[in-house]
């Protein structure tokens, strides 16, 4: 049996290791050992679902998930809707805590994106409460809920239009007191589709010749707005997301295949390009929006 040790802290900084481990796995059934998880963010949760799905499809059996021992983490996973989405992906024992009814502190619980109706659902959900979070935690103006919603809409549509597969989105606000000294909102969107290279190959690979690969495909889409559609109105989503994230001094990274590209602000020490990852299907997008600091 393949055993995947899930890091104790599973967030945007550690998910690559988890995805790499799953990408390199053999065909025996897998065990995801999450017993020691003490901290998990939307990137970690959605990556766990993506990793479990890849293991399931490759091995023809539901991988086993050993649930975190921490009651707090279990409760948080439950509030984020993780266990609902994990049905059919993981085999796990026990009865995860039920989600409490009533008001939740969750900005956007894990939502599967399969079609355009799901994007409408996401945009509808974030209209209530998100404005207050963006204003109170990030000190963004009250109108920021509109560009925030537009980012979410464009990033979710990326799954439908380019992946030809389903994916998930989730978002939450955190106090990064030690890491950054202020609040952030973390948005994670991942799919298991054909990835950027797969989406762009037919239309654009010829002009790149031997250089064509995951890195050049990501650069083509992320930096130059290329898309597989000949329509010149296409390809704006990622460009405009980058622009808005930059306005908010945020970070955006996209992993696809063996590469990860990013637009990183001065507070983030992530490299802008990594091209030595294990080949993982689809695309994994992380956006981090920090609280505004008055000059």
């Amino acid at each position: 049996m393949n055993v995947v040790a899930v890091p104790g802290s599973l967030d945007h900084q550690t998910v690559d290791g988890l995805l790499d481990a799953v990408a390199a796995m053999q065909e025996q059934r897998s065990l995801f050992d999450a017993r020691h998880v003490r901290w998990i963010d939307p990137n970690g949760m959605v990556a766990l679902l993506a990793a479990g799905s890849v293991a399931r499809d490759r091995q023809g059996a539901l991988p086993r998930l050993e649930l975190p021992e921490s009651v707090d983490v279990l409760g948080y996973l439950s509030r984020m809707g993780f266990f609902r989405e994990a049905q059919g992906i993981f085999d796990f024992d026990g009865h995860p805590p039920r989600r409490a009814s009533g008001t939740s502190d969750v900005l956007l619980e894990i939502t599967q994106i399969q079609g355009n109706a799901d994007v409408h659902k996401v945009i509808d959900r974030v209209q209530s409460g998100t404005g207050a979070v963006l204003a109170s935690k990030l000190h963004y103006p009250a109108t920021a809920v509109v560009p925030f919603s537009v980012i979410l809409s464009e990033v979710c549509q990326n799954i439908i239009e380019h992946a030809d597969a389903s994916g998930w989105v989730a978002a939450q606000a955190y106090n990064w007191a030690r890491r950054l000294g202020r609040y952030v909102v973390v948005i994670s969107v991942m799919d298991l589709g054909r990835g950027f290279r797969g989406s762009l190959t037919e239309e654009h690979s010829a002009r790149y010749g031997d250089r064509w690969g995951d890195t050049t495909a990501l650069e083509a889409a992320f930096l130059h707005g290329l898309t597989r559609f000949p329509d010149s109105g296409r390809g704006q989503g990622i460009q405009q997301m980058r622009r808005q994230v930059q306005r908010w001094n945020g970070a955006i990274t996209i992993r696809s295949g063996t590469a990860r590209i990013g637009q990183v602000p001065e507070w983030d020490d992530s490299p802008p390009l990594v091209d030595t990852l294990e080949p993982f299907p689809g695309a994994q997008i992380s956006i981090i929006l920090p609280a505004r600091v008055d000059e």
Binding site: N116, A117, V119, H120, K121, I123, D124, S149, V150, S153, Q157, I160, E161
Partner: peptide, 14 residues
């Protein structure tokens, strides 16, 4: 036009 309760002008098909 969009047979749903949502009134936001989002997604290309909408």
């Amino acid at each position: 036009t969009v047979t749903s309760l949502y009134s936001h002008l989002v997604t290309r098909p909408t």
